[in-house]
């Protein structure tokens, strides 16, 4: 009688696991949002903490531009020559960074997380690049794997420039800039994606990549 009891228990356990797995399976490998949603989901946190987006309208320069704030356009994996999706994000210094405000510049967007070793290790090199104040060049670090409080602690602890670092929690930025791998770096020139880079790189690597676009 004991063996059947054991088997029944195992089956109950597996059934529970199967039902849980079933919950996630339909959207398991494609968690990209449905396009039916056209307005951003406001959060309580959004109004009071850095890292929250302020809805904006699509700029005229790229009328069909995907917009992470409003949910317009189809989120997809970015490739060279795609228009960089619009987004606004409150940085850790409480100032809002809006992508379309930098359509005449070279923008380096670095997607990272505090628990990501390669991300954290390349950050000093990228910060060094930012400190050079190269005209026409903007750099922003967007955390896609943390809560805003954790990012704020990280920034304080490392003494990084608060105006360069923001947290995408509560926004749809990571849907419009999909990144299975981090660090994920997107280089945008005049509003157009030129390069998407996976993995960490050194100061010299980034410098040589950027030299192709800055001042040209």
């Amino acid at each position: 009688m004991r063996k059947p009891i054991a088997i029944v228990l195992i089956l109950i356990l597996l059934t529970a696991m199967a039902s849980l797995a079933g919950c996630s399976m339909p959207g398991s490998s494609d968690a990209e949002p449905t396009l039916a949603v056209t307005t951003p989901t406001p959060t309580t946190e959004a109004a009071v903490t850095p890292g929250d987006a302020t809805p904006t309208t699509a700029p005229d320069r790229f009328p069909n531009r995907a917009n992470a704030d409003t949910g317009n356009g189809t989120p997809k994996e970015l490739a060279a020559n795609d228009v960089a999706p619009e987004f606004s994000l409150m940085m850790n210094d409480w100032a809002t960074f809006r992508m379309s405000d930098h359509d005449d510049e070279v923008v380096l967007l670095n997607f990272w997380a505090t628990w990501c070793g390669p991300c954290v290790s390349e950050m000093p090199d990228l910060m060094k690049l930012a400190k050079e104040n190269i005209p026409g060049f903007t750099i922003r670090f967007i955390s896609v794997g943390d809560e805003s409080g954790t990012v704020a602690q990280f920034v304080e602890e490392n003494g990084y420039d608060k105006s360069l670092i923001g947290c995408a929690a509560g926004t749809r930025i990571s849907e419009y800039y999909p990144c299975d791998y981090i660090p994920y770096t997107v280089i945008v020139v005049n509003g157009i994606v030129r390069e998407t880079l996976i993995g960490s790189r050194s100061y010299n690597d980034y410098k040589s990549i950027l030299n192709k676009y800055i001042g040209k």
């Binding site: 919950c23 996630s24 399976m25 959207g27 398991s28 490998s29 299975d180």
Partner: peptide
């Protein structure tokens, strides 16, 4: 099989992003 039932992921070389993660 249950742990690894995102069969489409194997075909596409992409990982699951379901909430069960």
């Amino acid at each position: 099989v249950l742990y690894n039932c995102n069969f489409r992921g194997f075909a596409e070389g992409k990982i699951s992003k379901g909430s069960l993660k």
